[in-house]
């Protein structure tokens, strides 16, 4: 068996791949959180619950309507985004003039409601979701075995993240979003429908979370609590990266996933806490975050 630094390369690269996959979800989730926070000034605590909802929509589509993975990849984010429209229009829009912390409390309540509903309906034990046939199997690389689906998750997330980045940095709609993030009242005096922009942004952000949920469904079991723990890690990711930069969120998300994977190889006991430790170190050395602008 080949080894690297005294560890079998198979295990090393396997964990790195797993880390990269976790990183994909961190990136997709923290990206959505950052976009929403930038424009709405709300930290969306329901983000994890909506990620979970995305995975469940995929499971329901498959098991009740017979619609497979590829349909889910399209429909689940749309369904969750529509739910996001409802949330933003009926609840969040009432909070914009209040302290930001109310947004956190309200979305925390939403997260409890959504998680409770799914628990009531589906119980706490996870439900399996099969890898789609087109992405089953794997490839034997010289240093490791690469399951096709896992490779696909990394590539797909990366593509979605970069597309989002391009959308925000290079399009007219993105320019509206960036401008409204800086000064919504002024953008409104130009005749731009800022309230609509807020709704669309929230829907897009939670749509990204749902997409991450669908991607995650075949890797983890689909369970009502799958979003609760990941959202706390994503909060730490967001603190580490700072929410000022879109590219920063993406890089931090993937990077921390890798670090977590490496920790699993070299110090398994620390793998659940390593991101929190990094957060503490970043707070001590660069409180505004790696890519943050201090305000």
């Amino acid at each position: 068996m080949t080894t690297l630094f005294g560890f079998p390369t198979q295990a090393l690269f396997g964990q790195l791949l797993l880390g990269l996959i976790n990183g994909s979800f961190y990136a997709l989730l923290s990206l959505g959180l950052a976009i929403i926070f930038g424009l709405l000034n709300i930290i969306n605590f329901a983000h994890g619950a909506l990620y979970m909802a995305g995975a469940f929509v995929a499971w329901i589509l498959l098991n009740h309507l017979g619609l497979g993975y590829w349909w889910s990849l399209l429909l689940a984010p749309v369904a969750v985004a529509l739910f996001g429209v409802l949330i933003e229009r009926t609840l969040l829009s009432r909070l914009y003039k209040l302290d930001h912390l109310y947004g956190l409390l309200l979305t925390f309540g939403l997260a409890l409601i959504i998680q409770g509903m799914f628990r009531l309906q589906f119980g706490v034990s996870g439900l399996p979701y099969a890898v789609p046939a087109e992405l089953a199997g794997g490839t034997r690389l010289p240093f490791m075995y690469l399951p096709t689906y896992r490779g696909w998750v990394v590539v797909a997330s990366l593509a979605v993240c970069l597309t989002t980045w391009l959308l925000i940095e290079k399009t007219k709609l993105g320019a509206y979003l960036r401008a409204a993030t800086e000064n919504p009242a002024l953008v409104q005096t130009f005749g731009v429908n800022v309230p609509l922009l807020l709704t669309v942004t929230y829907a897009f952000g939670v749509g990204l979370a749902a997409l991450a949920g669908v991607l995650a469904a075949p890797i983890y079991t689909v369970s009502p609590m799958m979003g609760a723990d990941i959202i706390i890690v994503v909060f730490a990711v967001v603190v580490i990266g700072g929410m000022g930069s879109i590219m920063g969120s993406i890089v931090t998300g993937f990077g921390l996933g890798l670090v977590e994977g490496l920790t699993k190889v070299f110090y398994p006991q620390g793998s659940t806490t390593v991101i929190f430790v990094i957060m503490a170190i970043v707070l001590l050395t660069k409180p505004a975050g790696l890519f943050g602008r201090s305000s």
């Binding site: 609840l91 009432r94 909070l95 109310y102 409390l105 309200l106 925390f108 309540g109 939403l110 997260a111 409890l112 409601i113 959504i114 998680q115 409770g116 509903m117 628990r119 009531l120």
Partner: peptide
């Protein structure tokens, strides 16, 4: 059971709004 969480969540939402 799960209703406790749902109602807690609802209380959060109602209180904040």
């Amino acid at each position: 059971g799960a209703w406790v969480t749902i109602i807690q969540g609802a209380v959060f939402v109602v209180c904040v709004l």
